Simulated assay, not measured.
Amino acid sequence: MRSLNKFKNSKPRQTGATLIEILIAVLILSLGTLGMAAMQARALKGNVSSFQRSQAVVLATYMMDAMRVDKNSAKALNYNTGTLTGTGTINGSICTPASITGTTLADVNKKHWLETTKAAIGTSTDTTTCGAVYCDANGSCRVQVIWDDSLSGGLGVQKLEIQTLI
Rank of each mutant, 00 (worst) to 15 (best):
S3G: 10
S3Q: 07
L4G: 14
N5P: 12
N5W: 06
K6Q: 15
S10R: 07
P12E: 15
P12A: 09
A17V: 07
A17C: 06
T18K: 10
L19W: 02
I20M: 13
L23I: 08
I24T: 07
S30E: 14
G32P: 09
G32W: 05
T33N: 10
L34S: 11
M36P: 14
A38Y: 15
M39L: 14
A41I: 00
A43F: 09
L44W: 13
G46V: 01
V48M: 15
F51C: 02
Q55F: 04
Y62Q: 06
M64K: 13
D65V: 07
A66G: 04
V69M: 13
V69K: 02
A74E: 02
Y79D: 07
N80D: 09
N80W: 08
N80Y: 10
T81S: 11
T85G: 15
G86I: 02
T87Q: 14
G88K: 04
I90L: 08
I90H: 12
I94Q: 04
C95V: 12
T101D: 05
T104W: 02
A106K: 06
A106Q: 07
D107V: 11
V108F: 11
V108H: 07
N109Y: 02
K111C: 13
H112A: 14
E115M: 05
T117R: 10
I121W: 01
T123P: 00
T125V: 10
T125K: 11
T127P: 11
C130D: 09
G131H: 04
V133I: 10
Y134H: 14
Y134V: 07
C135R: 06
D136K: 04
D136N: 11
D136I: 04
A137Q: 01
S140W: 03
S140P: 05
S140Y: 06
C141W: 08
R142F: 09
I146F: 08
W147H: 01
W147R: 04
D148P: 08
D149L: 04
S150Y: 00
S152P: 03
G154R: 03
L155I: 10
L160W: 00
E161V: 13
T164I: 01
L165P: 05
I166M: 00
